[in-house]
Nucleic acid binder design. Sequence first.
DNA 1: ATGAGGCTTCCTGTTTTAGGAAGGTTTGTG
DNA 2: CACAAACCTTCCTAAAACAGGAAGCCTCAT
Lengths: 132, 132
Amino acid sequence: MNIGIASERSGLPAKTIRYYEDIGLLKPDRGDNGYRDYSTSDVHRLRFVQRARGLGFSVAECRQLLSLYDDTGRESADVKTIASAKLVEIDRKIAELKGLRDVLSHLVAHCHGDHRPDCPIIDELAGALPGS
Amino acid sequence: MNIGIASERSGLPAKTIRYYEDIGLLKPDRGDNGYRDYSTSDVHRLRFVQRARGLGFSVAECRQLLSLYDDTGRESADVKTIASAKLVEIDRKIAELKGLRDVLSHLVAHCHGDHRPDCPIIDELAGALPGS
DNA sequence: ATGAGGCTTCCTGTTTTAGGAAGGTTTGTG
DNA sequence: CACAAACCTTCCTAAAACAGGAAGCCTCAT
């Protein structure tokens, strides 16, 4: 399929998809006319990256995640090591998002009209040190 | 406090903190020597941004989030509108992270040795279209 | 067969930083 | 007091991750 369709289906702009090819994240086939030709598997990879990027993973981290996704010999220790590190990070991100969620909903529900330094919910939340 | 301490306490490099000042995210006091002087409230703001950035929010979005955080008249409809939009987005991100978590843990636990296109878990997960 | 729309490459610009030079300030130590 | 180490300042440059747009080829419907 052409890049326009791949763009629609992955949620990524065509520009970004070409950029990802430039930096070696994926190498679609080329048709006789020189057009890029994406498989559904390519689209899956792109969608995967689209999500991970939106969740604060760098392109380098996405490359790692893709390498797990691609690895055909998944029993290797390397793969497991990387994957469990990513799992820890994901859990941390989930916890932070829940924290952020709490700040916002409490701001809306309980702090209207208050002045900034007086709100105990914020102070508590701002108090948790982030991980790496 | 000096920028070095603020950097330690917020988890952000001093360079990044100065950049955030450049683009108007916060305006610390200045001492007689010209050094920036950060309050604990400044550090809270910085930590807030540090988290939000790591979770895939753009600096522009962080600016919005900070404006909620700062707003002293929180009963305004505008603020509530923005906040609830952010809440929806955060919930979406939490759901996506959980999805990503599932992919990874299943990859590690159940798919070792499989070839990519044969794994039904991935196919299923890659099948969910992301929101905006 | 022609015009609209999609694709190509290439070049430039923006955002969000990181790195480093050149120089002033502060602090601890002899 | 002197001096060095460790901090701070501004400014300039570069990298990462894109976005915008020009110039030109390809395709498809009318």
